[in-house]
């Protein structure tokens, strides 16, 4: 090494450490958020996880609050009992199946239609494009509660518009609440109505970001429309699709307000036909006043989320691997 490069290197090192020292003040910038996050984000989850190891029902809570005796807690310690019960709990697995079913019925058509819509909107010659895009966002700004109220009425068995239309074409009325798949369909429709526009816009942005050159070279190679979509458009949008799947999964696993309002209670229907996992957590924790067991369900949900995320991650990795071929 020459003397000059040595000096330059040491000067750079000194400057970098100066910057590092200066940047430490960044801790103060992050601190408010991080402290808040730990307090209101992390600690509740830790607490809930801990609660799952106790046989805590409302009586226990009361005893503890009024007596402040530690013995109440130690007496209530239940180890893995709640988890053993959870594993055998057919309602939990039913809730899991329901959650997945609703998720499937909502996500798959939604992504396809959103993609289709985005393709239509991507055309540069489309007139009033801002109008269409803005109109599509309107469902997204309403509250879930309002949506559920409207759709509850639209899907009513005797007087809802859908059954009335079915009646006119001679079909029997469908049990949109009492049936299993119909109720899933109704709830999925609520979700789709809300998110279709939003997802279309995300797809649209991704489509517009694809460089023209890729299309031109595909055209030169004589690729058909379908081949272009398959080998150019979709791989380029891989990140976006992954992002949407992840967000959709998280939202889907936590599905709560829609089934709650649709059914008007924590039961998820007389046959628990649209009981979702989070709704079941609430049912056990608040209705049945079994706080510890509800917390165990929470832990169960967490595990499911982790497994799904891991699967998501692996799928993403393999798609990325394919692309490099």
């Amino acid at each position: 090494m020459t003397a000059i490069s040595q000096t330059l290197k040491s000067r750079k090192r000194r400057r970098m450490s100066a910057i590092a020292r200066q940047d430490r003040v960044g801790l103060f910038y992050v601190a408010p958020f991080f402290v808040h996050f730990v307090l209101f984000g992390a600690i509740p989850i830790v607490f809930t996880t801990a609660l799952a190891f106790f046989n805590a029902d409302f009586q226990t809570y009361y005893e503890f609050i009024t007596n402040h005796q530690l013995s109440v807690l130690t007496n209530a310690f239940a180890g893995l009992d709640n988890f053993r019960e959870l594993f055998k709990d057919s309602y939990f697995w039913l809730a899991l199946r329901n959650t997945f079913s609703i998720w499937l019925i909502s996500t798959v058509p939604q992504l396809i239609i959103a993609f289709g819509l985005a393709s239509l909107l991507a055309n540069a010659r489309l007139r009033a494009s801002t109008f269409w895009r803005t109109a599509l966002m309107i469902p997204n700004i309403t509250s879930v509660l309002a949506v559920a109220i409207v759709f509850q009425q639209l899907f009513g068995r005797d007087f809802g518009i859908f059954n009335v239309l079915l009646h006119y074409v001679g079909h029997k009325p469908i049990e949109w609440v009492a049936g299993t798949i119909p109720s899933h369909f109704a709830i999925a429709t609520m979700i789709n109505w809300r998110w279709l526009g939003y997802n279309s816009l995300i797809f649209l942005a991704a489509i517009l970001a694809i460089p023209k050159e890729l299309y031109e070279s595909a055209a030169l190679d004589g690729a058909s429309r379908w081949q272009t979509v398959r080998y150019v458009t979709i791989p380029q949008m891989k990140n976006t699709i992954t992002f949407m799947l992840v967000m959709g999964t998280i939202g889907g696993l936590g599905l709560f307000v829609e089934p709650l309002t649709y059914g008007g209670g924590f039961d998820g229907g007389a046959n628990s036909q649209f009981l979702t996992m989070t709704l079941y957590l609430y049912k056990q924790a608040f209705m049945n006043q079994r706080l510890g067991y509800g917390a165990a369900i929470g832990v169960g949900i967490t595990l499911v989320v982790m497994i799904i995320s891991a699967i998501n991650f692996m799928i993403t990795r393999s798609i990325a691997g394919e692309e490099s071929k």
Binding site: E175, A178, T180, D267, A270, N271, Q273
Partner: peptide, 10 residues
């Protein structure tokens, strides 16, 4: 809930 299941056939 049980009675509702009977009536609704679920």
């Amino acid at each position: 809930q049980a009675l509702a299941r009977i009536t609704q056939g679920t």
